[in-house]
Design a protein around this nucleic acid. Structure first.
Lengths: 258, 258
DNA sequence: AAGTGGTCTAGACCACCTG
DNA sequence: AGGTGGTCTAGACCACTTA
């Protein structure tokens, strides 16, 4: 006898459903939505454990199996992490096996390419029209632009240009960035409460222009891999626009198709 | 009271497990394995329906819920497709929404880029050492090499070079390929019984050499996206090595990160 | 020993499809 | 009406972790 709006069409005023509403969802999807809202609202912070399945079942007045199905899906979406015998935890960009959950760059030799970071710049400015559109900002809104290079064995491999909404990242400065050890996305979630959930990438081959060539240590016109990433937080809200240029003589972008 | 080796460690000779065997798997994983073997053995062909959950439960002497969990996982791995009210079906590379399940190329305008095919060649030869290694062949084994161009609005966009083990693709000729309408992977599964399950891709930016430039209609040295794909069939057996070169002025490779 | 997630069962009812 | 997959429940037991 759940306290939530019941999932069956017959018991839920079907006669009021002749607008284009998506009809009622199953109970476990409603639970999923409620848990997601608690995550978004900060009730449980990254790295912390959430209540046990039995507690959640009592709280939502459903059976443990229903909670289980909701948590299962949130775990496959990488919002939660289950650990047998210990509990269920809010996923974090810390640890994440040596950092870099989103960076698909691999060394040709195999394995991930231990990278060093060199910050080029971090400044606030007004967003251009095209970037404003994809980030859901108004043209001219403040943004933070970060530029940096990633190096493998002192040779440049990645040139990143990162754009973040200024309203969400007040107080993000070059000093904060330089002082931070660990994944950049960990800094974002720990210090600014912005958690990157998923991202879309558009990949191209481009020719290096003069300034890119200089920073990457290649000739102008050399082929570079362009990776344009739009990252989303809870509720599919876009919060980062990033363009990476990769040297791929000794590295490659690895992908799996299912 | 399942007829299978029971899943619990206590009931399954734990004293024999001090070698490095992975211990016993849960029942639903054993069911998964049995279903996979039936798929591999051709008991149910692509597009056909498999027995209902109740029938499978009776056949394997387990509950419907256990079969359900096994089928669920096989469905998320794209080996099976569930259709409510109708049954569960063996996945196929036919239909697959306008073909192209593995081709991640998108038009910059948005949407998939209706492509025409032009076969350049299809011939049998001996495999080179490096290709033999990744395909699990002996150096000098026969392979089929297919070369083709994909065009959007009569302009070349993709140059494909495809290598297949000759032993699995007897009778594959340029004529067969030209006559075939529909996805190439559909031809493979329907005529040769080879179903592509998953693939790994290594992506790079490269400069076009003289002959590639000619076939792609670009200048020599122009940047092209190189997509090296290794495709696997049942049992993670590699069965295709493919190298695609993409023009990315008006198209891009789309990827999603979770 | 107690608490957590993981597996398995049995049974009920719902939603969808077909004859 | 009867079959299929989809959801939900209640209860049992197992495996892993911590104290």
């Amino acid at each position: 006898m759940p306290a939530l709006p019941v999932p069956t069409a017959s018991a839920s005023a079907p006669e009021a459903a002749h607008d284009n509403a998506p009809a009622f969802s199953p109970l476990y999807q409603q639970i999923k939505e409620l848990i997601t809202r608690s995550l978004q609202g900060g009730e449980w912070l990254p790295g912390q454990s959430i209540p046990s399945e039995m507690e959640l079942a009592a709280r939502f007045r459903v059976s443990q199996g229903t909670v289980r199905k909701a948590v299962d899906e949130l775990a496959t979406e990488n919002l939660l992490v289950r650990r047998q015998g210990k509990g269920t935890f809010v996923a974090t960009h810390a640890e994440e096996r040596t950092q870099y959950r989103f960076l698909r760059l691999m060394s040709d030799a195999g394995g991930s390419p231990g990278l060093q970071r060199r910050l080029i710049g971090c400044r606030r400015q007004r967003v251009a029209a095209d970037a404003a559109r994809v980030l859901g900002l108004k043209s001219g809104d403040p943004v933070v632009e970060i530029r940096r290079v990633l190096l493998a064995a002192d040779a440049p491999v990645v040139l990143d240009d990162i754009l973040l909404p200024g309203a969400l990242f007040k107080g993000l400065t070059a000093e904060r960035l330089s002082a931070w050890k660990g994944p950049m996305y960990r800094l974002f979630e720990a210090e600014f409460g912005v958690r990157m959930i998923r991202a879309e990438e558009k990949i191209r081959a481009v020719a290096a222009d003069a300034s890119q060539a200089r920073e990457m240590g290649v000739d102008a016109g050399a082929p570079l891999l362009s990776v344009e990433r739009l990252s989303f937080t809870y509720g599919d809200k876009p919060v980062e626009l990033r363009r990476g240029l990769y040297r791929t003589e000794h590295h490659h972008y690895r992908n799996e198709l299912n």
